[in-house]
């Protein structure tokens, strides 16, 4: 869809329209999104593994969650499409397709088609038993759709290796051409990361325990679902308990806002790589924390080396032609 004849978005123009064009369409390096693709694939596989042992018991013909109770749980239009898929593939078939798709995302095979298949199959599985879905599932679905928008297999991928066969080695490992689709996907990741973090912070601040400093205790006191037992530490230090409680929504709000300030964006994103998994552990949702950390990856400003030069781009177009 790249248009060789398209005029360049004017990066130095003022106004809302120009800012919109810069934010959503300025071609950008797809390599950070390739890393996102790999991490999303791994996260998706980890979440799918949690379905593996009980899939038949939950969603089988005599399963605990019937299509009727699933339909009553979440809105999905008329639901006819799900019945068709369910009859054609069954939950095990949908699960198998999802596993294959997320594995292909990890190695970078199949391009956009695989990413769309991964997102659709995971969504189908969640619709089949929506009351089993958690925050990590929501975020991985969002991440997968963003990966589908991006040309995420243009780097660090099997597709790239196969496309480079027969060329000289330097062409095969050369940086990929900047892409407007990469910019759209990065923009969507930025919007969603900010919205999710802000919505979580607001949801928490509606409860008194997040104001009086005891929420960390109530999270740690869940003996079965907690990841680490911090009750003795909190019992020994009220300050620590208060600090952990207030730090969570404070970081979420700072992340949501900081992603939009270019001066602090790389710093807050790098902090997110560490802080989000920590928040996930504290709230008992480690995969959610990891998924949120993946949202931060493209904004860390990590050096990826030189981007493709225009002459290289021309060479690639000629090669494609």
């Amino acid at each position: 869809m790249s248009g060789p004849a398209a005029p360049a978005p004017a990066p130095d123009d003022g106004g809302v329209g120009a800012a919109w064009m810069r934010f959503w369409f300025e071609p950008t390096d797809p390599r950070p999104l390739a890393l996102v693709r790999i991490l999303v694939g791994l996260l998706g596989l980890a979440l799918l593994w949690s379905w593996q042992a009980d899939l038949g018991r939950w969603c089988g013909p005599e399963g605990l969650v019937t299509p009727a109770s699933a339909a009553a749980w979440v809105s999905r239009g008329d639901g006819a499409w799900l019945a068709v898929v369910d009859a054609a593939l069954g939950p095990r078939g949908v699960w198998a397709i999802a596993v294959a798709s997320f594995a292909a995302l990890v190695v970078g095979a199949g391009g956009t088609v695989v990413a769309v298949t991964a997102a659709c199959s995971l969504a189908l599985l969640l619709h089949r038993a929506p009351m089993l879905a958690g925050p990590a599932d929501d975020c991985v679905v969002i991440l997968t759709w963003c990966t589908a928008v991006a040309p995420a297999t243009r780097a660090l991928s099997l597709d790239r290796v196969l496309a480079g066969r027969g060329r000289v080695a330097s062409a095969a490992i050369a940086p990929p051409v900047p892409s407007w689709r990469a910019r759209v996907a990065t923009g969507l990741l930025q919007v969603h990361a900010s919205v999710i973090a802000l919505a979580a912070a607001i949801a928490q601040l509606k409860g008194d325990v997040w104001w009086d400093g005891t929420a960390a205790w109530w999270l740690a006191a869940r003996a079965e679902s907690r990841v680490v037992d911090l009750t003795s530490a909190y019992a020994g230090s009220t300050y620590l308990m208060n600090l952990a409680t207030h730090a969570i929504p404070a970081f979420e709000a700072a992340f949501a806002v900081g992603l939009w300030a270019s001066a602090v964006r790389p710093a807050i994103a790098r902090l997110g790589l560490v802080a989000w998994p920590a928040v996930g552990v504290l709230v008992g949702e480690p995969f959610w924390g990891l998924a949120m950390a993946v949202f931060a990856v493209p904004f860390t400003g990590l050096a990826w080396g030189a981007a493709a030069s225009p002459s290289h781009a021309v060479t690639r177009r000629e090669g494609a032609a």
């Binding site: 869809m1 790249s2 248009g3 060789p4 004849a5 398209a6 005029p7 360049a8 978005p9 990066p11 064009m21 369409f25 300025e26 071609p27 950008t28 390096d29 950070p32 051409v177 900047p178 892409s179 407007w180 689709r181 990469a182 990065t186 930025q190 270019s262 964006r265 493209p298 904004f299 400003g301 990590l302 050096a303 990826w304 030189a306 981007a307 493709a308 030069s309 225009p310 781009a313 021309v314």
Partner: peptide, 26 residues
């Protein structure tokens, strides 16, 4: 925002490499 790629305009077409066509952008 991620690290920006080179924004040099393609001398032969007047377009940024990887830029979207106008109808696509719309």
């Amino acid at each position: 925002m991620p690290p920006r790629a080179s924004h040099a305009v393609d001398a032969s077409t007047g377009a940024l490499p990887g830029a979207a066509a106008e109808p696509v952008r719309a």
